[in-house]
């Protein structure tokens, strides 16, 4: 069976940072990523990051991913596998099972694990929400910013948090018209400046509105939006929008199955958007060999994911007795 000092599950901002940090202390690191490319959500981010210089403020997300990969390539002790999904953790012997592509299956026994499995898109219930053309915001970004495919011609964005606002701006950059953004709350949830950016390009933001129906037989050909009252119940006039894409930016949930499987103590934290592993300040969970970092530890931003990844990486190295640089 394969063995490794530190296994990092997930190659996004948190996982790459954890891998680089653990490798810098001489740990032998194995990183698995289910996607075809490393970088996670960073590779889809064309906007510049906020924060300070140390957190690479003013740098576009995909450039930050390039910088992380460059750092990682400097270490000979890191093995990365893309198109490789960790499918199970078996607490009885600490073995992780992985499937590469669709047909190569392997087991690995790591000494320490950093779970940086990210998050998944949330959906809200409305008639026809299953139709092709109702896409998660991350999916729309993947199509247009990673593979250069136009997701559609005209979009309704659902949610005016940072993701909804940023992706609306990116859609306009890709030549897609944004018919409007609906937001259930009475103000935008994302940064005001992001809202200002799309507003001045003529995109309406409908506050206290929601999508009440997607229209279409085989795929989306329209959407109906409506104002909602204080109890979030639709009221008043229904407005039809002629769109071919409905982009959902209504939040993310941490991806935690492996943490549950491992028997880590889990807690429900609404601020972190769901169940997350109980962890200490070094990102170590209740399981002595398992750390967590990034969105899997609670939904935050890529900047914090990178910091958490670094902390987890250092902490695993310490736990292996390699806590100092030579």
């Amino acid at each position: 069976m394969r063995e490794t000092d530190v296994m990092v599950i997930g190659g996004g901002p948190a996982g790459l940072s954890a891998a680089a940090e653990a490798a810098s202390f001489g740990c032998d690191v194995t990183l698995v990523e289910s996607d075809l490319a490393l970088g996670g959500q960073l590779i889809k981010q064309t906007h510049k990051f906020f924060g300070s210089k140390d957190e690479r403020a003013g740098t576009r997300g995909f450039k930050i991913s390039e910088l992380l990969l460059e750092e990682l390539s400097g270490y000979g002790n890191v093995k990365t596998y893309t198109n490789c999904t960790a499918t199970g953790y078996y607490p009885e012997d600490g073995v992780v099972t992985c499937v590469r592509a669709e047909d190569e299956y392997f087991k690995i026994k790591p000494k320490k694990i950093v779970m940086a499995t990210g998050a998944q898109e949330r959906l809200i219930p409305f008639p026809n929400n299953h139709l092709p053309g109702v896409y998660g915001a991350g999916a729309v970004q993947t199509l247009m910013n990673v593979y250069g495919v136009k997701p559609g011609d005209k979009v309704l964005m659902v949610g005016a948090g940072n993701i909804g606002l940023i992706v609306s701006y990116q859609l306009i950059q890709a030549g897609v018209q944004v018919a409007g953004i609906v937001e259930a709350m009475d103000k935008v949830g994302g940064y005001w400046v992001h809202a200002a950016k799309v507003r001045r390009l003529g995109v309406p933001i409908y506050l206290r509105h929601t999508i009440v129906e997607a229209i279409g037989e085989q795929y989306v050909t329209g959407a109906v939006i409506q104002e909602i009252d204080e109890r979030f119940q639709p009221q008043g006039e229904r407005k039809s929008l002629d769109v071919d894409i409905i982009c959902m930016a209504v939040g993310l949930s941490p991806t935690c199955e492996l943490l549950w499987q491992a028997g880590c103590e889990m807690v429900f934290v609404p601020e972190l958007c769901g169940y997350v592993a109980q962890r200490d300040r070094n990102m170590r969970t209740s399981h002595k060999d398992i750390w967590v970092a990034g969105d899997a530890a609670g939904i935050e931003e890529a900047s914090s994911a990178m910091v958490e990844g670094r902390i987890a990486g250092v902490s695993t190295a310490r736990a292996l007795g390699r806590g100092t640089h030579e």
């Binding site: 394969r2 499937v99 299956y105 392997f106």
Partner: peptide, 29 residues
């Protein structure tokens, strides 16, 4: 409250794996 509702059990595998792949069973490296 959502926090009071048991969220259910999680079992591997967390993605579908072809039985044939499982039957070939792990690697021999």
């Amino acid at each position: 409250k959502i926090s009071e509702i048991p969220p259910g059990r999680f079992r591997p595998p967390s993605k579908p794996v072809k039985l044939g792949v499982l039957a070939k069973g792990g690697d021999d490296e």
